[in-house]
Amino acid sequence: MTDIIIIGAGPAGLTAAIYARRAAKSVLVLEAKSYGGQIINTPDIENYPVAAHISGFDFATKVYEQAKALGAVFKFEKAVGLRDNGDTKTVITAKNEYEAKAVIIATGSENRKLGVEGEDKLVGRGISYCATCDGAFFRKKDVAVVGGGNTAIEDALYLADVADKVYLVHRRDAFRGEEAGVAKLRERDNVEFVLNSVVTKLNADRRLQSVEVTDRQGNVRVLEVSGLFVAVGRVPENQNFASLIELDSAGYAVAAEDCLTGTAGVFVAGDNRRKEVHQLVTATADGAVAATEAVKYLNA
């Protein structure tokens, strides 16, 4: 039996693996896709201490290699369930079951979808959830960004430098995101605010051709855009473990800074935990805390 199973090989899970191995506990990391988590989408990290510039890919690879060199074992399987047997826990994947004395859930979060018909089919054919990843495909074209938070504002600013015209579609008339960013957007000639409006239809043939938006009065307007960047928040990936951890209304795991859940021996770390600041540095911090708490639990 493994001492600690870590679900998710993003920055939180990988850091937890490093701390747990350095405390001489056996570690199995289960990951659905590939190590690194969403940070691999970031071309240039500029706010992590020590590294003034590092790509998300290089960051993830370094932490992965560090965890591996310390003896963490990796299996690329998606955890679909978790069972509490008292002193042990069973993590269920599509094909296997793994037993451990403690489990750290570090599954992170995924992009929230708009929920408009045809969205899934148009991903990669005009619809994107990452402006810095896909913006280059829309050089000199017209695009729309949907959302009202910091991500939407940053995406619109980024795209204003790349695209010909950027519409920012937001369902309210005030932004949740930072006022400084909104002010910068207002200064851009090629940015148009489409407020109190929601996307109601996607028009496409082989790729996105235009987007229909409807305002609060029911007025319909068609934006001729070839790209639609969806920035309407993220969904924490906790659903498969909801029987053992408390979730808030948005789906985040309710746990304090000590990363403890209501189930003894089960810990949460990273973006799927409810907290004020979801950043790379707080994800790695969570990993350290959760692993330390797990080691404390095992040694008690």
Partner: peptide
């Protein structure tokens, strides 16, 4: 796709890896 943008366009690619 940076070296062959016309191929990316021909196949309607707007996200990578594809």
């Amino acid at each position: 796709i940076d070296e062959n943008p016309d191929l990316a366009d021909e196949f309607d690619i707007s996200s990578i890896p594809c």
